[in-house]
């Protein structure tokens, strides 16, 4: 039976996992949009950008015009916003730094050198276009994920990293698909989304539906084995929680987060792939809520930190 790691460290690992995944997935979404914009020079750039901001949870007032420059400044290169790609990389780095003693030195070096190379990569992107920067982020995220799997024991350290990664992935997959709901005519088409999720080859190999939107949606939401499918990520998250529960001494306390995730899985299991598109809004909302609720439940169950308690002397006023 595990003795339990410090809550503070567990929370740092969880967020490191989340932020690396966020950087990766945001880069995929932004890349898909830039691709879309490039393909259709007569399309409504402003509308496309607005929907991009919206699905990333950073809705901008419709009256304010946005162009590609804004997208780059605010969604790609911004260092302070942890929902921006660069901000997410820096946030991952900062969390990992404080948990440095429990991750492998290779994982740390990966994040540290990624952070150090951001400036260089940006200058390169200003020369040749943002695609190179976005690819850099995805490649480094992949490296980090690979090192996570290969250089630390698959115990609590690993479970929290992967748990964070999975919950973020569920949320981000939902956002990726949401682009087909919002201003669909200005958003990347289904095939582009498939490519953005790195799913093209896997999809083609197992599907018969060609470019049928229903089949693509079903693949990205329901497929049991594709890593970026929402269902698969739910399974991975549940497995992490199961392992954490089994390792611990608190089996008497019901793990709320597991229940939340399993309920989402059940709902997905009972959805009809043929009527998926009509259920899409409801399912995407379910996925985002599940991710958020599970996050809160995990935080209160495992972390329960009152971070950096600031004490006041009583009666001071």
């Amino acid at each position: 039976m595990s003795r339990g790691m410090l809550s503070r460290l567990a929370e740092l690992l969880y967020w490191t996992g989340r932020y690396v995944e966020r950087a990766d997935d945001t880069s995929r979404i932004v890349d898909a949009y830039i691709h879309r914009i490039a393909e259709d020079p007569f399309g409504d750039l402003n509308a496309a950008c607005h929907s991009l901001f919206a699905i990333l949870g950073m809705e901008v007032d419709a009256s304010i015009p946005i162009n590609q420059e804004t997208v780059l400044t605010q969604l790609v290169y911004d260092q302070l916003n942890p929902s921006a790609i660069t901000g997410a990389v820096l946030a991952a780095h900062e969390n990992a730094r404080r948990a440095r003693e429990v991750i492998s030195s290779e994982m740390w070096v990966c994040l540290n050198s990624t952070r150090n190379d951001l400036g260089l990569q940006r200058r390169e992107a200003e020369r040749v276009g943002p695609a190179s920067y976005l690819k850099f982020v995805r490649d480094r995220s992949a490296l980090f994920a690979g090192l996570t799997d290969a250089t630390i024991s698959h115990d609590e350290t690993w479970w929290f990293l992967v748990l964070g990664r999975s919950l973020e992935r569920i949320d981000m997959t939902a956002r990726l698909l949401e682009s087909r709901l919002l201003a669909a005519e200005h958003s990347p088409d289904w095939l582009t989304l498939l490519r953005a999720a790195g799913a093209m080859e896997s999809y083609l190999r197992q599907s018969t539906g060609g470019s049928d939107p229903e089949a693509i949606a079903a693949f990205l939401i329901l497929d049991r084995s594709f890593p970026r499918s929402a269902y698969h990520s739910l399974t991975v998250a549940d497995r992490c929680l199961e392992d954490l529960t089994r390792a611990g001494a608190r089996s008497d306390v019901v793990n709320q987060a597991r229940r939340t995730i399993r309920m989402a899985q059940t709902r997905l299991e009972y959805s009809d792939p043929r009527s998926l598109l009509s259920e899409l809004p409801e399912l995407l909302e379910l996925l985002e809520q599940t991710s958020a609720a599970a996050n809160d439940q995990i935080t209160s169950y495992y972390f329960r930190q009152i971070a950096a308690v600031v004490w006041e002397a009583e009666g001071a006023t």
Binding site: V309, V310, W311, E312, E314
Partner: peptide, 13 residues
Amino acid sequence: PLKGIYNGGPSRS
């Protein structure tokens, strides 16, 4: 007579 520290909103006696 009474001293302490707490974590929360402003306090007064």
